[in-house]
Design a binder for these strands. Sequence first.
DNA 1: TCCCATAGCTAGGATTCCTACCTATCCAGC
DNA 2: GCTGGATAGGTAGGAATCCTAGCTATGGGA
Lengths: 114, 114
Amino acid sequence: MKAEAQALKGHLDVLLLATLEDGPRHGYAIKEALREGSGGRFDLPTGTVYPALHRLERARLITGSWSTVDGRRRRSYRLTAKGSRQLAADRGSWREFAAAVTALLERRPWPATP
Amino acid sequence: MKAEAQALKGHLDVLLLATLEDGPRHGYAIKEALREGSGGRFDLPTGTVYPALHRLERARLITGSWSTVDGRRRRSYRLTAKGSRQLAADRGSWREFAAAVTALLERRPWPATP
DNA sequence: TCCCATAGCTAGGATTCCTACCTATCCAGC
DNA sequence: GCTGGATAGGTAGGAATCCTAGCTATGGGA
């Protein structure tokens, strides 16, 4: 395994949901949004993105619909109500998680610092 | 799978290394340090901690030695030079990773904001 | 004409973390 | 004396996730 691989480590779902917060996007556009929104850091292979979208759809967090634009078929996804709630919850979880890891790595006392 | 499980998502190694930065600790003490240092958030099962320590030892990031204290056998671990370097690198990776995820979730423009 | 960007997909492997289980000692409470 | 919890170590196996590697197909620019 490459050293820098496995970069997402379980946080992919919340990122995918977040890209849909402003409105529907198709898979490839989601992938591009993550790449651009992260300064190139999250340049995910399609073998990561598409299965993850299918997983979110099975979980009813997003719904997809087919369309054709310029001769290319697209599957456009949007957040469901459940997905919206999940996104809000996951954002909170991320903040707590990041705070806890940072506290341990920066060796600050828990819970808060000046 | 429980909703809140898989809490560490690939960041366990850097946390384990960080607990050894102040000096040697044995496995159980490492587990306790993570629990206390995270305000109880990272209360890891031993089935997570011990195999991870063995993994780090195999990778020569830490070295362990047996001792007996109060009739209990302990395996005390300390950082190797390689482990120290890895910790420094992983800290940097964490900062970048956390910044990228936060930027996407808080929808701040990349790379920086006031 | 050929290649790149766009757009979608799957199979299988590697890794990681957790659940569930095990042994054993020391000490406090009953 | 006995029991249970905290301390201390461990393993086996499963579930989940992400990546690699491969595939099809269209449109447009060099």
